[in-house]
Every structure is written in C-alpha cells, then in structure tokens.
C-alpha cells in the first residue's frame, strides 16, 4: 500500500509540475497535499494499535477527503486535455470521473461517513464484507482501468496532432 501511495504521490507531483492553467494548478495543489497525507496514512496503517476515537474519526474523514481528491484529480486531467485541444480524451476523462464518483466516492464515502457518525455517537463500527469483499475487488479495478484507457487516448491524441 505504501509503495502504491508513493507511486501515486510521485506521479501527482510530476504531473502538477507541467503547469497548464491556474485552476489546474490550484486543484492539483489540493491533490498533492492529499497524496502526501495518503502516504503517511498507509505508514500509520502498518502499525496495528487501538486508536483513540478522535483519531478514528479523523481517519474516516480523511478517507472521504481522499475520495474527493481522486475525483478532483480526474477533473483536473479533463481540463488539461481541453487546454491541449484534445476533445476525445477530455470526454474519456469525464467518463473516468463518473466511474470514480459512482464506484468510489459514493459507496465508500457513505461508508466513511457512517464510520464517522458511529465514532462521534460512541458506537463501534465494523464493516466486514468477508468473501463478498473479494468479489467486489474487480469492480474497484474498473475506474482505474478506465484511467489507463484515458491515458492511452491522450497519448494517441497527442501523437495524431504531432503526425498531423
């Protein structure tokens, strides 16, 4: 997890170095901050220890912020494509954004919100999906695969422009 988070962080920093426009830079700044915090959070998750309720609440809230950051990232990439005059890849990123909202932000966000409410109201919440969780795994891969597809479309779009 930490390795993956570091990869994402480096990728995000490299991307935001390619400054396009003000709103892209602003949105990417938010994504950068979250990506660093995600790395720290995965390191924290290595240590299994009972956490005070306030920290549990903070971790839940942070999870929610992370989902928002992922969506923000996709929107930033759409702007990036629009700025470069790549309309088809921009449409593709729009679809990637929708997938992340439907599959990540909505269900996971609700789960984290429920966790947050549970902590505040002093109950312990434990979501255990069991074997069903494994079946859900391919579903979570879908938006990521589409992210890859969008990237490939960007590449092809750029190549088409270069070759005329």
């Amino acid at each position: 997890d930490t390795l993956g988070a570091v990869l994402i962080m480096v990728g995000v920093f490299k991307l935001s170095a390619i400054a396009v426009q003000d709103r892209f830079v602003t949105l990417m700044r938010f994504v950068k901050v979250v990506s660093v915090l995600v790395v720290l959070n995965t390191i924290r998750a290595h240590f299994i220890m009972p956490l005070p309720p306030l920290v549990v609440a903070a971790v839940n809230l942070f999870g929610l912020v992370t989902q928002v950051a992922i969506v923000a990232f996709c929107v930033a990439m759409r702007w990036f494509c629009e700025e470069a005059g790549l309309s088809w890849p921009a449409e593709s990123w729009k679809f990637t954004t929708k997938l992340f909202i439907i599959i990540y932000l909505f269900p996971l966000g609700l789960l984290q919100l429920a966790g947050l409410v549970a902590v505040i109201s002093g109950q312990s919440s434990n979501v255990n999906l069991g074997p069903a969780g494994l079946l859900l795994l391919p579903v979570f891969v879908v938006p990521l695969v589409h992210l890859f597809v969008s990237t490939s479309r960007m590449k092809r779009g750029a190549e088409t422009i270069v070759s005329g």
Binding site: D1, L3, G4, A5, V6, L7, I8, M9, V10, G11, V12, K14, L15, I18, V20, T42, M77, F80, C81, A84, L86, L137, F140, V141, L144, L147, F148, T151, M154, K155, G157, A158, I161, V162
Partner: peptide, 22 residues
C-alpha cells in the same frame, strides 16, 4: 502537445500505484 506527452509517464505511475493500493 509536448505537455501531454510528458504527462503520460506520471499518469501510468498513478495507475500502477492505484492498482497496488486496492
């Protein structure tokens, strides 16, 4: 166009990172 080409590698990194995080 140049900036798009430069964006491909970091995007691929983010994809693999995301895959590792699932």
């Amino acid at each position: 166009v140049d900036s798009v080409t430069r964006a491909i590698t970091p995007l691929r990194m983010i994809f693999w990172g995301g895959l590792l995080c699932i």
